[in-house]
Amino acid sequence: MFEAKLTEGLILKKIVESIKDIVTDVNIDISPSGISLQAMDSSHVALVSLNLSMDGFEHYRADTNMVLGVSIANLAKVMKLADNNDQITLQADQEATHLKIIFENPKTERTTEFNLNLITIDSEHLAIPETEYSSVVTINSGEFSKICKELFSLSETVQITTNTDYVQFSVEGEVGSGQVRLGHNDSEKKEDQTILEVSESVQQQFAIRYLNMFNKASTLSSFTRLCLHQEQPLVVEFKIDNLGVLKYFLAPKISD
C-alpha cells in the first residue's frame, strides 16, 4: 500500500509540467523513504532524475518498494484537473493497475478523484554514476532561463566556459558571435547572486533547445545549479525546498 499527501499540490503540478516535454513513459520508484524517477528522452541525449523525500509530504506511507509505470503525458492531463491550491494525495495498492490521484480544496469543499491507468515498462535498471564536478555555478533561475532563450535566437548551440573568475555563455552563427559573461556576484540580494565554484576550468558545447526545456523547472526554485566536468554530461539542478531535487543531465556536443 502506498499513500502520499502533499499539502502544496502546486509543486507536483510544476514538477509534471517540468518533465512532460522530455520524458514519455517512466517507471516511478516508490520506497519507504520517498519517490524517485529516472528516465532518458527518446533520443538518449537528456536524462531526468527526480528524488522526493518522504519528509516533504504531510503524510507518507509505503509499506514496500513498488514500481508504478506511468505515462507522463497522461499524468500531465490529469494534473490539469488540480487547482493551484489543491492538496494532492497519491494512492496505489500492491500490484495496483492504477494510481489514484485525489485533489482536495478544503476551502471550497471541492474534491476531484482520478484513477490513472498504469502501464508496464520493462526498462533495464540503469544508474547515474557518482561524478566529481570541477565546476559548479549557482545562478538565478530566471536569469539563466532568460540567457538561454535570448541566445537560442542567435544559435542552436551554446558554449559554456568556466574559470575561477567567470562563467561564459558564447554563441556563434550566421548572425555573428558573442558571449554573456557572469562574474562572481555575492550581492546582498541572495536571489541575484551568481556563485562560482571552479576547481578546474571546463569548456563544453550544448544544444540550447534542451536547456530551454529544462528551464521549465525554474518555477520550482529561485536558483539553478549547473554542474560541469570535462567530457561528462552537464547537470542542470533545481532544488525543491523541503521536498527534494529535480536534475537534468545533458550530453555535450562534440566537434569532430
Binding site: Q38, H44, A46, A207, K253, I254
Partner: peptide
C-alpha cells in the same frame, strides 16, 4: 560541425 553525444556512455547499468 559538431555532433551530439548521447547519455548511453554515462547512464548505464553498473
Amino acid at each position: 560541425s559538431k555532433y551530439q553525444s548521447t547519455m548511453d556512455a554515462f547512464y548505464k547499468a553498473i
